[in-house]
């Protein structure tokens, strides 16, 4: 029996989002960009799961993907890949600090 339930809220109440860049519209595009990076990361992890399944000779069906046992070791390797991806994505953000360190 389904209980009557409101959908979850997706916008936070309270102080307005601060403005960071030249316009709030640009800020929103950057926030969308980070959400898109999350989706790319998810695809990458799913591919890694496919490779893990292939290594053990298991067909990469949707069910096999869901049942794949992620080891701490594999999780740690994915973590490093994610960090590397973020550094690539944010290169132009870190420019000023990189220049300072090279000086």
């Amino acid at each position: 029996m389904a209980v009557k339930r409101s959908p979850r809220k997706r916008v936070a109440k309270g102080p307005p989002r601060p403005q960071y860049l030249d316009s709030p519209d640009v800020d929103k595009v950057v926030i969308m960009l980070m959400a898109l990076a999350a989706e790319v990361s998810v695809l990458r992890d799913r591919l890694d799961t496919h490779e893990g399944l292939a290594e053990s000779g298991t067909a990469a069906t949707a069910m096999a993907v869901e049942q794949f046992a992620l080891t701490e070791q594999r999780q740690a390797a994915r973590e490093l890949q994610r960090q590397a991806m973020l550094r690539r994505l944010l290169r132009v953000l870190t420019e000023e600090v990189d220049e300072l360190r090279q000086a």
């Binding site: 990076a37 990361s41 998810v42 799913r46 992620l70 973590e79």
Partner: peptide, 18 residues
């Protein structure tokens, strides 16, 4: 978490860490 939900949460954690 489903496979992909977990992967998305991991991205959030990594982003927070970086």
């Amino acid at each position: 978490a489903t496979h992909d939900e977990f992967a998305r949460q991991e991205f959030c954690a990594t982003l927070r860490k970086v």
